[in-house]
């Protein structure tokens, strides 16, 4: 999938990130490659702990090093390799041309500054706005994300907002400078479905108007089905499947993706008394990734899976999978 098309705005190649810990080296991201096109929405789904956040934080040099160590990779954005920029240079990109919504709104908002200040700061720094103009824009942004009586709430501190309101403040901050690329890490986990629908509308709108390319990490497959153009599935620090959204939901090819879709509770009734989960434990990332990470839990695993890591290979147009099993033929891939 590394093929660069003319319109790709962000291109990641062979990204590897590890953490050096007392217990050994944690192999969190094991050679991830993907490209994002202008105006498209790429959803990233996958198991908790599979490396979704670490991948995106690596791109923007947001991980403290040590313990994090980006051992290989390039990230092409507007002709620059983001991984080679100095801290001062990357700061010019973050929050300006690339907006980032962190997974955890409480620790990423600063508790000692007002919400208004935190939205206005990037506007003043990156867009050179006056205080007045930044204030007006901050109110407009808060209204866009559905915060009632926005102008009266600029002087509130984060703890005075509900969980979902804090998450929407994060979204407002990320959108403040009309970024070319938006990276959103579980941005709607704290939102009820009506507010979520409103945010998804807003995002659709911005994609069309500004041609913003969006990476949307989510565990909510319903959300992914509703807004994504393409979907990446991660497991154990690898991309194990990548496909256009319809294809992924209707014709999944990786055993993990199939198992994941199988665990969805029936959306037309809560009849089943127990929910299905995938048996077994997630991979221990301290082990170097020399075999298929899903093998111990996989229904199809055979000898080769435990000895060799399957590369991501193209199945058909824009559909890639990393698996030794050929689901179509029901035999080992050759």
């Amino acid at each position: 999938m590394g093929t660069a098309s003319v319109e790709s705005v962000l291109e990641v190649n062979d990204l590897k990130t590890v953490f050096h810990t007392q217990d050994g080296t944690v192999h969190a991201v094991n050679g991830v490659s993907f490209a994002l096109n202008a105006g498209e929405l790429l959803a990233v789904v996958g198991e908790s702990g599979s490396g979704k956040s670490v991948t995106m934080m690596s791109l923007l040099q947001l991980l403290p090093s040590p313990p994090a160590d980006i051992v290989s990779g390039t990230v092409d954005f507007g002709g620059a390799n983001l991984l080679e920029l100095t801290p001062a240079e990357i700061r010019q990109f973050r929050g300006a041309r690339i907006g980032f919504i962190f997974q955890d709104p409480m620790t990423s908002l600063n508790p000692v500054f007002t919400v208004g200040f935190q939205i206005m700061e990037p506007l003043r720094e990156h867009m050179g706005m006056s205080k007045r103009a930044a204030r007006d824009r901050a109110i407009e942004l808060l209204e866009l994300v559905g915060i009632p009586s926005a102008s009266e709430r600029l002087n509130d501190y984060p703890h005075q907002f509900s969980g979902g309101m804090r998450q929407r403040v994060m979204i407002a901050i990320a959108l403040a400078c009309d970024p070319q690329v938006l990276i959103a890490d579980e941005p709607t986990t704290a939102l009820d479905v009506t507010v979520q629908a409103q945010i998804l509308e807003l995002i659709r709108d911005l994609r069309q108007k500004l041609g913003m390319g969006i990476i949307w990490i989510t565990h909510d497959l319903g959300v992914a089905a509703g807004i994504a153009d393409r979907v990446i599935v991660m497991y154990g620090g690898f991309i194990v499947e990548h496909a256009p959204v319809d294809e992924l939901f209707h014709n999944p090819r990786h055993p993990y993706t199939m198992a994941l879709l199988h665990t969805l509770p029936g959306h037309d009734g809560g009849e089943a008394s127990r929910l299905r989960s995938i048996g077994g434990q997630p991979p221990d990332l301290i082990q170097p990734p020399l075999s298929c990470p899903f093998a111990p839990r996989c229904a199809h695993a055979f000898e080769r899976c435990g000895r060799e890591n399957p590369p991501l290979r193209a199945l058909r147009d824009a559909h890639d999978v990393a698996c030794w099993w050929d689901t179509d033929k029901g035999e080992e891939w050759s």
């Binding site: 009632p148 009586s149 009506t194 509308e201 509703g226 319809d246 939901f249 879709l261």
Partner: peptide, 26 residues
Amino acid sequence: AVPVPDPAVEAKRERIILTGDVPNPA
């Protein structure tokens, strides 16, 4: 407004979109 994990359903669903200002709890 509940999202459904099926792109075909999502593409043609009808939501009741709430309009009007969200009131201030103060």
